[in-house]
Design a protein around this nucleic acid. Sequence first.
DNA 1: CCAAAAGTGTTAAACATACACCCATGT
DNA 2: ACATGGGTGTATGTTTAACACTTTTGG
Lengths: 231, 231
Amino acid sequence: MTTRHHAQLRIAADLAILTVREGALHALVITRGNEPFAGKPALPGGFVRTDEDLDAAAVRELREETCLNGADLHLEQFGVYGEPHRDPRGRVVSVAYLAIMPNLPWPSAGSDASGAAWVAVDRAQGNLAFDHDRILYDAVERARQRLELTTLATAFCPPEFTIGDLRSVYEVVWGETLDPRNFSRKVINTEGFIEPTGRKRVPATGRPAALYRAGNVATLNPPILRPSTDS
Amino acid sequence: MTTRHHAQLRIAADLAILTVREGALHALVITRGNEPFAGKPALPGGFVRTDEDLDAAAVRELREETCLNGADLHLEQFGVYGEPHRDPRGRVVSVAYLAIMPNLPWPSAGSDASGAAWVAVDRAQGNLAFDHDRILYDAVERARQRLELTTLATAFCPPEFTIGDLRSVYEVVWGETLDPRNFSRKVINTEGFIEPTGRKRVPATGRPAALYRAGNVATLNPPILRPSTDS
DNA sequence: CCAAAAGTGTTAAACATACACCCATGT
DNA sequence: ACATGGGTGTATGTTTAACACTTTTGG
């Protein structure tokens, strides 16, 4: 018989850390070292400490998992998951955070001792521990919507990026192709979205593209609406 | 000396129940009967029970406060509030829900034994217990955004309503006036938003208006964008 | 020169806005 | 008749979408 404690309640912060690499949306996935679900993939996260703010816990987890200071990254709470039996250890209520990163050359794919790896969202779905499939799905939906209404796309990009880079973020996250020429104009004419740096980047082949940095507004007005998905 | 338990953690579900009445956005506010904040106004809510789902707790609280079956109302989780010292009793993490109701003739304004009353959001703000001012603010912002992207406005209306009723919801929640003629057309041409019932309602004065019921789609495509708030 | 990606010009269709005007009812 | 809110028509300007075409680089 296992000793069943009296319904201990704990709060966790779980992270859906997304990035775009190799033309696909990837999530940072860890391999669990402990029971339950030892050996299974899961979203990074951990318990919120006594006297620790929820957001602070998310920042801490992000730093522990990515060795990056979460302060300059996009980090956004997007849901709570509290179904009574979602965690076999007892009652655990998870606060879910969406984090967006540019495509940094880390962690090295697959063979990392830390057990964290970028996995294409399509491939990650269906195998995750707990209810993390659901959490990841909701995170991606939230990101898709945020691209329409906010300047979130710039969070996927390095400090300097081309309009082509930015368009690629939209295309990969939405799974739609966009007209490069019209996209250019729309973005340039949306005040505060991006600012020119004056520099250019020469691609392997083709005309050099102007480089931009993220602008100073967070919400897009007007929004960048995705091509209507008339089902 | 009060006996201070070791950092007991509890989960609460708090409700921002909104409706439109008398041309203003109102929230259901209770007067607290117990410490802390006894006598102060607050949003309705309560602790989530052991083995109770978060959404179920919200539905239960809604029923307890309004005597209405929450099943047919719009009820949507919109945030978590977990700052360590937001509740003087100890660590309480609140899951916040947005509920939308039509303008029912209840509770009777002010003089209700239950201690629950509709209060104009403008008047409620600034007095609420805990961090409920913040929660209510976020709820209203969420509702404003939902009007743009979803058919939430119909949840403010009775089962049958006129386009004027619907427009009034937009005007009150957004705090903007809309052109009645253009609004009509936009709503009618948005497939799935509203369906004609064939009936009409005769107002005190003026031409009878066609009655509609809520349609079968939840997300508006294209969205109904609010007049640009070019600051 | 050619391939490739960036970016400009142009046009037609769709949409938004403003508002003149008519409609249907109670008083 | 007239006040009042419901609703249609229509002109005007803006935004979108599609795509021909030019620009700038490396091979």
